[in-house]
Amino acid sequence: MAKTVFYSFHYEQDVHRVQLVRNINALEAQPLLNSQDWEQVRRRGDEAIKNWIHKQMAYKKAVIVLIGKCTASRPWVMYEIKKAWADKKPLLGIRIHGLSALGSVDSAGSDPFAKAIGAGVVPVFDPAMQDWSGKTDSKATYNKLRDNLESWSEQGVIRRSW
């Protein structure tokens, strides 16, 4: 069976990119809520969101933050990072700005781990590839991600007890 992971990401900005990651089928992850289901959870308040996160993260072997342009500014992503760190789950990041979402790529976002738990602690992988003219090549980026996703998922770090 594939390794089970919890994907943390900025829904509105990156849901199409996340769907591409899920379509690789290298890892088993939590269900991807459609916008209506997410709104139902969100409308019930912060406790409902926390409960959903706790339930979805409970039996996952690792937490992967899929880092887009705005990911580091999202409060629920910060919450998920801190929860993974507190639960001593392997944690890592993968940049997804180079994947095409509705025909366009994005610029790289800042490191969400620097804000949440300290820079330089958690590995961040960047599959973004460029073509001969220096533009991001989304197909080559997808292929690099597809070829490396499973091995990268094994390289998360766990918070050590002092």
Rank of each mutant, 00 (worst) to 15 (best):
S8P: 14
D14H: 13
S110P: 13
Y79M: 04
K115V: 01
F9P: 03
S8Y: 14
M1Q: 05
N51Q: 14
Y142M: 13
G45Q: 10
V5H: 06
H54R: 13
K144E: 07
I24T: 06
R44H: 04
I24Y: 01
W38K: 11
P112M: 03
L99G: 04
Y59H: 12
Q130H: 09
N25C: 07
E12G: 08
I49E: 05
K89V: 00
M78Q: 06
H54M: 05
I49C: 07
S107M: 14
M1I: 03
K115N: 05
K135V: 03
R74G: 01
K55S: 12
A84G: 11
D131I: 05
Q30S: 02
K61H: 09
T141Y: 01
Y7G: 10
D111N: 11
K3W: 11
N51Y: 09
Y7T: 11
D126S: 02
F125T: 08
F125Y: 01
A72F: 02
K135H: 07
L33G: 04
W52F: 14
H16V: 15
L102F: 10
K69Y: 08
G134Q: 04
A58T: 15
S73T: 03
R22S: 05
K3S: 09
W132G: 05
A114T: 10
A128L: 07
V105A: 05
A62Q: 05
P31I: 11
Y59W: 09
